[in-house]
Each structure stands twice: as C-alpha cells, then as structure tokens.
Design a protein around this nucleic acid. Structure first.
Lengths: 344, 344
DNA sequence: TGTTAGCACTCAAATACACCGAGTGCTAAA
DNA sequence: TTTAGCACTCGGTGTATTTGAGTGCTAACA
C-alpha cells in the first residue's frame, strides 16, 4: 500500500510527464511548491515507487516516467477532476443546437467535436441497424433485369442496393409481393426479418404469388442487409502531431490500423459496458497500440444502449481532460437522442 | 535543344534516381553499359544539363537529382514504355470479373486496385449524381413531423434524407403530391429538377393539392440533393512508406490534406481532360504537394465522360509503370461500364 | 528515526575533430 | 572531342571529450 506522500509524488510525476513529455527528476519535483521535500528524500521515495513498478527509468541516470501500472493507478485513483471551460461546453452544446434528423449524423458530429476539443483521434460506433424496426420495403425496377431494393427503418435509416430480377418475374407480381412483405413485416427488427419470412410469410407468398420459387432469390437479396454498425472516425491524422510518434517507424502500423478501421470495430464492439472505460497501452492487446490509450463511453436512448464513442491518444494522454470531455459529450448525446428519438 | 547524348544521360539519371532515391554521380553513370563514356565526359554533359535546368545538385559536390523541369521533360519525351506482367493484368481484370450493379462500387474498386498495384495513393472521382435522371421519388412518413425522402435515379443511385413535414399537411395530400411529382418528373436530370418544378409542376400542384403553400418547404427539402460527386480514396497512408517522407514534418501537411479530401476534390474536378495528365510537384499549386505528382485519367460510358481516377505519388515516382497501370484501369473501367450501363 | 547535504557515479546529448569517399570543376594532354 | 589527372568540397562516420541532469549511497542532523 502506498503512503500519502508516495501518492502525491506519483501524481505529480505523472501530471508533469503528461504535460512535458520529458522524464521527471527529483530536483524538478522538489522545486514544485506542493512538495516541500529535498530532492534526496524524493529520490528515496522514487526508488520505492520504481521497485513497486509504478514508474520507470529510461536509462540508469535518467528521470522517471510512468509505467503502464503507474498510469493505471493514476487513472483509477489519482485523477484531478477538471472543469471544462465555458467555450468547451459551448462548443459541445452547439452540435446539438439544431435538431438533426439523421441519427447517424449526430453521432458523427459528436466524434468530430471530440477530436476537435482534444486533438486526439476519435471514433464513434453507430447504432446497430439490425436492431431497427422495419418501416417500409420498396422495390423499384430499373430495367429488365435489375431493380433497386430499399429498406427504411423506424429511425429513418435507409438501406439500399441493386438486385437482379429474374426475367420470369413480372412487374405486377413484384408489386404484389412487396405489398405482402410490407403488410406482414412492418415493425419487425431487421435482424429477425429472414426468420419471420420463412416462418410466417412464405406460405402467404406461395399462395398469392405466381412463381414464388423463381422470386425467392429476389426476396433474399432484398433483405440482405449489412449487419455491421457504421463507424465514424475524426482526426485520423492527429496522432502525427504527438511527439512520441515523431518517428515514422512507430506511427506507420498505427496509421495503417486507423486507415483500415476494422480492428477498431472489433475493439469498440467489446467496449459496451456502461460508463467510462480506459485501456492503457498493451492492455489493448493490439500490436501498434502499445503506446496508445483508448477511452470509451457508451451512449443511449432512454435505457437502450446504442453505441460507443471513444478517444484514442498516446499513453501519455491528458486523461483528466479527455475523460471529462468524453463524459460530457456522451451524456449530452444521450440526453438529446432520448429527447429526439424516444417513442417518436 | 538537347543532343541525343544529353537525352540519354538525362533519361538514365532519372531512371536511376527513381529506382534508388539517391543522387546520381558521373562515375555511376559511366559504369552503366548503355553509356560508354568516361566519367569526365559525363561530368561535362551533366554540367550542361544542370545549366539548362534539367538536373540539380543537393550540395556542391553531390551527384545530380532531376529538377521539376527534368521530370517534365522525362514524362513528356523520355518514358520507356512498360509492359504489365500477366499477374497485374489479371488483377485488374479480376475486379471486373463479376457483374457489379452499383456503379459507385466499381469505381471504388478501381481506386483500390490502383493503390494495390502501385503502392501509391489513389483517388477516384465518382460520376456526377446530378446528371442522373430521376427514376422515382418516394416520401415515407416516420411520425407526425418527420418523413424520409428518397430519390432513385436511372443508374440505381439512391439519395435519401429525413425531412420535416408541417403539421398542417395530411398524409393523403402528401401521397397525392408524390404521385404528381413522379408523373411529371421521371426522366428529368436531377440538376434540372428544381427548375422544372417551378416552371411546369408548380401550377399543377397548386390546383390539386390542398395547402400547397405550407407544403412548399417539404418539396424543396425533398429535392435538396447533394451536388458533389462522391470521391473514393485508397491507400491513404501509402505515402508514409515513401523514403522522401520519412521526416514527419514533411508528411504532416500532406496527410492532413488527404484526410480532409476537399482539396483533392477541387483538383480532380479540374482534371477532366480526356487522356492521361501528369502534374509534377509545384505544378499542382497546392502547398503540401511540392514533392508529389498526380497522374489523372478519365473514364466514361460510351462517349459520355463520367469521372476521373488518379494516382498520387512522390515526384520521384515510377511514372512509366503508374501511367501504364492507370491507362489500363481507366480503359478497362470505361469498357466495362459501357457494356454494363449503356442504354440499360 | 526520518530527513537532508554531499559526493561519486552514470549516461545521453552535444561538441569537436579527423578522415573517408563520392562527388565536383578545371586543365592539359591524347 | 575525349579523357586522365588533380585539387577541392562536403556529407557521413567514428572517436574523444565535455556537459549536465540525473541517480544511489552515506553520514550527519533534528
């Protein structure tokens, strides 16, 4: 167990390192007015902190830098709460000022403001489309062989793709089918559509539609909806501004990962616990992210959790500020989404 | 006017520099078997080429590197034609192997293959949606105040957004309006929609629709279609692999530009002349692109030009290979689009 | 017993210096 | 016109040397 004094020293070391990026020495600390000790005393305490694994040296006679364990302790117990400036609060509010009707745009804007305010990279995982309920199916013929299938959900989300229509299918049958599908399927969550079709609608269709069999493919194609949530990035290149990544070798794998996006999709999917979560350095278990930390929060409509928004920065990150901002954005976002979309 | 020998030397210098990235000295050149001259003779020729502005020294006793003028001459007159390997041709063909129904996806895939084959960044400017012709307008009410407006074009492109519906508008009127709009506007290019509405459809609407005035806003919102062509990037981080950008300072502005995309939108818009166009270094007139070259080509359906695809690389770029590949992709793309979409 | 002053020690970073080698331009001879 | 030869330049590399910020340890002090 750490003493009060060790906690104070650990906190000041990490605060200073986060600010300066330079290893912190005992003399630097002794000059701080919150610590009234000689450098020698501090050296003794630092030696203990190092033995316990909270801080490290970069070489034998260097100052100390926080270890991952140190950051972990800092984030869990030592964060000095930050107040946002009026301007920051104002900026956050401004994105919700005008009523935006596309849910995904609001989420995207939230990611944008996060990266603007923090100068880190921000990622938002959108709501799962597959949970949405069907509002309308529409099939619009383009020519002999092709048509556009459009699916509208209760949240106003539109999915569309071009499908092939067998030559044997005539337009009036197509229309009849769409009508039946609409009658029977409105209100069904997208993910359950196929199931429902086979169990309940197939019989009806077979009875009423001429060549049901040749149409089957069209139906399946129509309901083929991407299962993945959309993801929005903002400030993808902000990592280039971090001095720890001034070496291009270090940043290349990270930028590649950010460009490809898919690793982050998996990562964020896992981060669906309510509240702020911080993963530090190798806790992320992704090579390329050894020197990064990820802070995540979830947002919701009412009690229903919709998605995750996150801030990605270097391990030497302004945790306090980032957490405060993320918290604020996530809660404002949830509030406004609840107001706009609940039971609408 | 350059002599045959100067041309040969210039070409070999640039070829070598593109390959190695190192300044090329007279002794290196004299050892090449296509040049049977002593280093001293070559030095004299190089001095002349430098005076004429085709090559430069990095410091007083360094070898020579091509100047922008040198690259320009090289691209215009000295390119040694390259043959693509069978694998390359195969890869290009593979993207067009299966019939893809979404036009934009084909374009996006083309950009992807370009960056895969060249290891440079690739950009594709999609076809202008506004030129497409209207196939169907659809308005689907979500709740009391909002509805989804969907516009389908003859190419199968779908535009959608959520609109507000005044409380005074009743559903049957909405439906009637949509019917009238569809009757009168199908086949009209999207860009002309508004014009046509005011000139020809407004009167009809006023006659048949109850509260035409309060509905006006809804109509305008519905037809509010983004005018900009979509743009697709591939290999956004490939520039990080180029040794000339190993200094993070040099690449930061460029990556920022690539992230933001809009500068490239303007740039590609201007590059709509048929055939291959190469702009070298500062010819691009964009700060951040001093050390980059852009190669563009257009693609088309039949005689109608649709858009531009481009390769962005360092000025020290494999022009010959890049041009050959781009040419091939652009022409294959045009061929296949023509086959698939002309008069469909 | 906890704190501190003092001291020897370490190591990264900066500075200085010599030297190598790849390059140049110029001159004079072939 | 070409080439051999030579003096010169300059970036890069290797080796000392110095500097300074840091450490750990010890002994004296309150």
């Amino acid at each position: 167990m750490l003493t009060e004094r060790q906690l104070l020293i650990l906190q000041v070391i990490i605060d200073d390192f986060i600010r300066s990026g330079q290893p912190v020495g005992s003399r630097t600390l002794s000059k701080k007015h919150e610590i009234a000790l000689s450098s020698a005393t501090i050296r003794n305490e630092m030696a203990d902190l190092e033995e316990l694994g909270y801080i490290e040296k970069t070489h034998v006679s260097s100052g100390r830098v926080p270890s991952e364990k140190g950051y972990r302790y800092y984030v869990d117990h030592l964060l000095s709460p930050q107040r946002l400036t009026k301007e920051d609060i104002q900026k956050i509010k401004s994105i919700f000022a005008e009523r935006i009707y596309e849910l995904e745009k609001v989420v995207q804007k939230s990611a944008q403001i996060l990266s603007d305010l923090t100068n880190y990279t921000s990622i938002a995982l959108g709501p799962a489309v597959k949970e949405n309920k069907l509002k309308r199916i529409q099939i619009i013929p383009l020519n002999q062989q092709t048509a556009v299938a459009i699916i509208v959900t209760d949240t106003g989300h539109v999915e569309n793709h071009v499908i092939t229509v067998p030559a044997s299918v005539n337009p009036s049958d197509l229309e009849k089918m769409v009508n039946i599908l609409n009658e029977r399927l409105i209100g069904v969550p997208l993910i359950d559509l196929k199931d429902k079709i086979y169990k309940e609608v197939a019989d009806v269709l077979r009875k009423h539609i001429h060549n049901y069999d040749s149409m089957l493919k069209t139906i399946v194609e129509t309901l083929d909806i991407p299962q993945e949530e959309k993801m929005f990035f903002a400030g993808k290149t902000n990592m280039l501004n971090q001095p720890e990544f001034s070496d291009i070798q270090k940043i290349r794998p990270l930028m590649k990962m950010i460009e490809q996006e898919k690793d982050f999709y998996r990562l964020l999917r896992k981060h669906n616990r309510k509240g702020i979560q911080v993963t530090i350095g190798r806790e992320n278990q992704l090579s390329g992210m050894e020197n990064c930390s990820l802070i995540t929060a979830t947002y919701s409509i009412g009690d229903e959790q919709l998605g995750t928004i996150a801030i990605l920065g270097p391990t030497r990150m302004e945790y306090s500020r980032a957490i405060t901002i993320l918290n604020r954005v996530a809660s404002d976002l949830s509030t406004v989404l609840t107001k706009w979309y609940q039971n609408s």
